[in-house]
Every structure is written in structure tokens, then in C-alpha cells.
């Protein structure tokens, strides 16, 4: 057993070629997941049971099962049905990348909607009362009071979820997608050098994670610029 440094230098560019797919999975499903999360949130806080209950059931199922199982159900499972293969969604679900994005979106949407709900529930009631006193309608209060404050409150938890979404994109390699992890697994299968390859890839992911943390730190400071009490 030895640690082959030249192998790392050789394979790092190969693995980094998968960075585009990893980023695509992260950004597309992160964006779509956020839209889904807001929709689920609105259903949850609508106060109407026929909207609230389905959203709750959805969140319960998607948070209670492993993301890997969800990916497999969508990629391997759905084509079992004729109706799916004939539907307009087939050109998305036929591609492994499309399936991974669908699975990651559905999964992250469930988690993020709970985070956003925590933010909405954390908004000071006094502010909403002040809004009512100023004669704001429910919609105005939601847009101008709840939304900005809830965004700030839920941002720290949301940044954690984006990081776990980044880590989940690595699971796309299980359905033949050549993201960074997928490429690394192919290289390891050829060279049988798991230490060199997997450790250097882990460092790449860690750099990504730290970058995301820094980015969200900047956004948090920006959104919280009115709340600082120093100076």
C-alpha cells in the first residue's frame, strides 16, 4: 500500500470535469426545490385542511424515507408504468440526470418548507399587529412583514440544507450519472486506489462546503444589517 501523489494529479482534472454536473444538480434542484418549498409552506399555513393535510403527508413521506430510495423509485421504478412512458414527462424521466433532479427537488422541497415554516412562525407577533394597526391587508402583511423577516430567520438552517443537498448530489452516481463522485468511482474501479481518489475528492467537496458557508455568511450579514446593535 502506498500513497501515489502523481495519481492524484492525474485524476483530479478528470474528476473536476464532473463539477459541471454536480453544480447543475445542485443549482437546478436547489432552485426548483425552493419553489416547491414555498408552495408547500403556503399550503401548510393556509389554514385550510384540504391544503394543509396533503402538504403534511408529502413532507412526512419525503423526510421519512432515504433519498437513495427516492432516487431509485423515480429512476428505476416509474418506467414500470406504461402511463409514465407515454406521458409528456418521459423525456425528463428517461434521462438519469432528469430523474436525479426530480428526486433531489422533491426531497429538498420537503426539508426546506419545514425550515421556512420555522421562520414564518418565528416572526414577532407584535410586528403583525402593528401591520394590522396600520391597516395592512393579510396579503400586504405577508409580503412586507412576514416574508423579509422569515427569510432572515430561516437562512442559517437553509444554508445547512443547501450543504446537505450538495452532499446528496453525490448519490446521483448510483444511477450512472458521471458527476464528480461518479467519475471518481470509475477511476477507483480502474486503478484500485481508493485512498488517493476518494480523499482528494472529499477535499474538493469540503472546499465547496466552505465556499457555500462563506457565501451564506455574507448573505446573512447583509440581511441582518438592520439588526446589528454595534456601533
Amino acid at each position: 500500500m502506498s500513497f501515489d501523489l502523481s495519481l492524484i494529479l492525474e485524476s483530479l482534472p478528470l474528476m473536476l470535469a464532473g463539477i459541471g454536473i454536480t453544480l447543475k444538480l445542485l443549482l437546478v434542484s436547489g432552485f426548483l426545490g425552493l419553489i416547491l418549498a414555498v408552495a408547500l409552506l403556503l399550503m401548510r399555513i393556509s389554514g385550510k385542511f384540504y391544503l394543509d393535510w396533503p402538504a403534511q403527508a408529502y413532507i412526512y413521506v419525503f423526510r421519512g424515507t432515504p433519498i437513495l430510495v427516492q432516487i431509485f423509485i423515480i429512476y428505476y421504478g416509474l418506467p414500470q408504468f406504461e402511463a409514465v412512458r407515454d406521458s409528456i414527462f418521459w423525456h425528463i424521466l428517461r434521462e438519469p440526470t432528469g430523474c436525479a433532479i426530480v428526486a433531489l427537488t422533491l426531497n429538498t422541497g420537503a426539508y426546506v418548507s419545514e425550515i421556512l415554516r420555522g421562520g414564518v412562525l418565528g416572526v414577532d407577533r407584535g410586528l403583525l399587529e402593528a401591520g394590522s394597526a396600520l391597516g395592512m391587508s393579510a396579503r400586504h402583511k405577508f409580503v412586507y412583514i412576514t416574508t423579509p423577516i422569515a427569510t432572515r430567520l430561516s437562512l442559517p438552517a437553509y444554508s445547512n440544507d443547501v450543504i446537505s443537498l450538495l452532499k446528496s448530489t453525490a448519490l446521483a452516481s448510483t444511477i450512472t450519472i458521471a458527476d464528480m463522485t461518479g467519475i471518481a468511482r470509475t477511476i477507483v474501479a480502474d486503478t484500485y486506489a481508493p485512498y488517493e481518489i476518494f480523499i482528494s475528492l472529499a477535499i474538493v467537496y469540503m472546499i465547496f462546503t466552505l465556499g457555500l458557508q462563506k457565501l451564506f455568511g455574507v448573505i446573512e450579514r447583509y440581511l441582518g444589517r438592520y439588526t446589528r446593535r454595534d456601533g
Partner: peptide, 14 residues
């Protein structure tokens, strides 16, 4: 900061 699947693969094959 590391995907779970990488840790599992590294520990098993390593």
C-alpha cells in the same frame, strides 16, 4: 462537508 457515500466507499475499499 463530505458526502456520506464517499466516506462509506473510502472506509470499505480503503
Amino acid at each position: 462537508g463530505t458526502p456520506e457515500i464517499l466516506v462509506i466507499l473510502l472506509l470499505y475499499f480503503g
